[in-house]
Design a binder for these strands. Structure first.
Lengths: 200, 200
DNA sequence: CAATAATTTGACCAACTGGTCAAAGGCAGG
DNA sequence: CCTGCCTTTGACCAGTTGGTCAAATTATTG
């Protein structure tokens, strides 16, 4: 029964999601209006609602897409690889996302700050399980003496915190750095931090 | 001309600011309504507006108070002290704020994510100057060989990022840690991070 | 206790909100 | 060119929003 989307549908749905991402990531769900999204997408409000059932539908559609990209890098972490390399690679992947998809990061941040009303289940379910698995791996590495003993959970938190900071607090970072590109120094600093934390 | 506030004024203004802090920190300025704040404060909406000119006035009043507490710990950093001790003390001060004043942290986060429309000037002015001064101090310490060479700006960012993460992403952190108190491990991890980053 | 000032409220308003709907406009295949 | 479907829109609606105001209520003070 699902007819494949026409060209026009694809284009407009993409435009709406792109506009929604921009608006929702800045003002959060409650602070955003359909008119803002419609303007940004270059469509009329009723036209938006022809493609999406409701404001909520646009938002949850964005969140769903986001969660995939959010969890994926975690899965790519290879227990067989070199500990420092693996964690560094993960951190860099996250930093790249902050650099190239800051709106996604801010959307996520907004949702969490609001209390994660729509993704709390994923956090307590899928995400937690994933992190638990990785914690086991990291503890294993530490037990083998391949890295220093660290709390794996807080290690992961610090990678998240630092990398997402460059997207979520972009305005503040740039206010302080002036013309210097934040991401130049960020990567080196991230390396230094992980190195100091992990290398025996 | 400024008559001192009566008991009733003090009580109600405090109630309004407390309610405003709760509401604004969760939903941001645009996502919050005066009715929410009024309910939370246990006052009627017109009564709110008897004490504050507008929604904006409540919000900016909160931001002003917040900025003081936000900048103060930075000023307490003593260039004469022991580098690692000083930075560690600063980080712990920030972590304590995240633990005991998470709403303030989230209010700040919301404002920044929105693009800091009301405090951009402070960021580019007062905050930037302060950070610049501290950067000089840190660079001095490094030049004297008392700490490893680090980018002082990104060092400060990582302290901010990590400490505020525990307040702003509280829901996510607790979703992952379950019953474990985040702030137990956080302080130790913060120490480990700074130690690894600073100790030669 | 009366008078004055501070506080609280219900009724109200214009603008905005998310959402509906019937009708009109456009576009493909025959 | 016509038919049928996809797309777009203007008009509209009920509920919410920030904010006003005059009147009522409650302190405070001489």
């Amino acid at each position: 029964m699902n007819k494949p989307d026409t060209r026009i549908q694809k284009k407009n749905q993409a435009a709406i999601l792109d506009a929604g991402l921009l608006v929702f990531s800045q003002f959060g769900f409650r602070g955003s209006t359909l008119d803002q999204v419609a303007d940004e997408a270059g469509l009329s409000k009723p036209n938006l609602l022809y493609y999406f059932r409701s404001k909520e539908a646009i938002y949850t559609s964005l969140l769903a897409k986001l969660l995939e990209n959010w969890l994926e890098p975690l899965r790519e972490l290879d227990p067989q690889g070199d500990p420092v390399d693996e964690l560094m690679a993960y951190a860099k992947r996250k930093l790249d996302m902050s650099q190239h998809f800051p709106r996604e990061s801010r959307l996520f941040a907004n949702e969490i700050i609001q209390g994660a009303p729509r993704i709390g289940d994923v956090l307590r379910g899928e995400l937690r399980e994933l992190v638990d698995e990785i914690a086991v791996v990291i503890n294993g590495w530490a037990a083998e003496g391949r890295i220093k003993a660290v709390d794996p959970y807080h290690l992961i938190f610090s990678i998240w915190a630092l990398t997402q900071h460059y997207a979520d607090f972009d305005v503040q970072v740039r206010a302080i750095l002036g013309d210097v590109d934040p991401f130049d120094g960020a990567e080196k600093h991230l390396e230094a931090m992980l190195h100091g934390l992990l290398t025996p």
